Amino acid sequence: MTPAEYDYLRQFLKARSGLVLSNEKQYLIESRLLPVARKAGLQSIAALVAKLKEPRETILAEAVVEAMTTNESFFFRDKTPFEHFTQVMLPEMLKARAQQKRIRIWCAAASTGQEPYTLAMCLKEMESKLAGWRIEILGTDISNEVLDRAKAGTYTQFEVQRGLPIQLLLKYFTQHGESWTISQNLRSMIQWRKFNLLDSFQTLGQFDIVFCRNVLIYFDQPTKTDILARISKIMTPDGFLVLGAAETVVGLSDSFKPMTDRRGLYMPNLAASASAQPPRLSMVAGAGRTF
């Protein structure tokens, strides 16, 4: 791969997905995109680049973005965010939403679905406290491939052994040979949607809780700032934002403030956003679960 070809692919990926690759990531592009090229009948990265430059070459472009943005996920990843979910966020929401009895949750960059399904299991374990409540979970990702896997809810033995307690595996999954499928009851709790974080958030509606973990690290600073600003506009004033362990709003956004002693958990900074007064958004009803 020539420097010019690598530079083109870097610019292409940043424009299409926000992904920023350093000068040292050429090996990553070659290892992930050579299979894409060969599947398309192309013999080299050079041929792939030439094909991408053709007008209206959308199918190959999507395949390239999917190959470069597919990231791993696993159940109860990092544990702490889910402890915050059950011990901090939900108790606060149960008090604040006692009249409406409705909560909307967005899992951005949901990948193969482990994060939304983990939240669904947490909710099921608390269902005695949620009688009559409507809980909606929206899981989005830029990749059709990982969303198809998420919708199916089927995981390998290796995947269910990564972070998933055995009692929850036996309670919510059915084994089929070497794979495990999560129950239809939990699958029905989640709405899946292909979505690019560079696109407008206005069609998503308003959320009480947003999980946007381990995705901002792939963007440059202006893109991070832009995404955080747009998230703040679709969150309820008393909502919660959850970022990954290596991510922060510090130096990027005044729209959120960290919760004391709650690593990775943020709330809207009402003082900073008071003058902005964003337009009121509808909740946008979607697939959800009434307990």
Rank of each mutant, 00 (worst) to 15 (best):
L123H: 06
L21Q: 08
Q26K: 14
I166Q: 13
R289W: 15
D148T: 15
L147D: 04
V284F: 01
A276S: 11
F75Y: 00
T70M: 02
I190M: 09
L34I: 12
S188Q: 15
T236E: 02
T203S: 12
Y117E: 08
D226H: 15
L265M: 00
K194Y: 00
D7A: 07
Y117F: 15
E5S: 11
W192G: 13
R262A: 14
T154S: 10
K129C: 13
L13Q: 00
H176D: 13
A276Q: 10
A67T: 15
T58S: 14
Q175A: 14
A67Q: 11
P3F: 07
L265I: 05
S31L: 03
K257H: 02
T290N: 00
K194R: 12
L19E: 09
R10Q: 11
P222D: 03
T260K: 06
G264F: 08
D238I: 07
I45W: 05
D238S: 09
L168S: 09
R162C: 12
F158M: 11
A37E: 01
L216K: 03
A272H: 02
T69Y: 04
W180M: 08
F256R: 03
A37I: 03
N269F: 07
E247M: 01
T69E: 05
F219Q: 09
F291P: 08
W133N: 05
G177K: 10
P165E: 05
E115A: 01
G264K: 03
P55M: 03
M68C: 12
E178A: 15
H176P: 09
A285F: 04
A61N: 04
L170F: 06
Q99W: 07
T118L: 04
E30D: 14
P278V: 04
T118D: 09
M283I: 15
V65T: 00
D208F: 02
Q99K: 03
L270T: 02
V249L: 10
C212Y: 07
M121H: 02
A40G: 11
L138H: 01
T174L: 04
F195A: 05
G177V: 10
Q87S: 13
A108D: 06
D7C: 00
A245Y: 03
F201G: 04
F195M: 05
S143D: 11
E145V: 15
R10D: 04
S255W: 05
R32M: 09
G205K: 10
D226M: 15
A246R: 00
C107M: 12
L198M: 07
R77Y: 01
G41L: 09
Q202P: 10
F256M: 12
I231E: 06
K194L: 05
I217R: 07
D254A: 08
K39H: 07
R38I: 10
L204Y: 09
I45D: 01
R134N: 15
V49C: 13
M68W: 14
T140R: 05
M259Y: 06
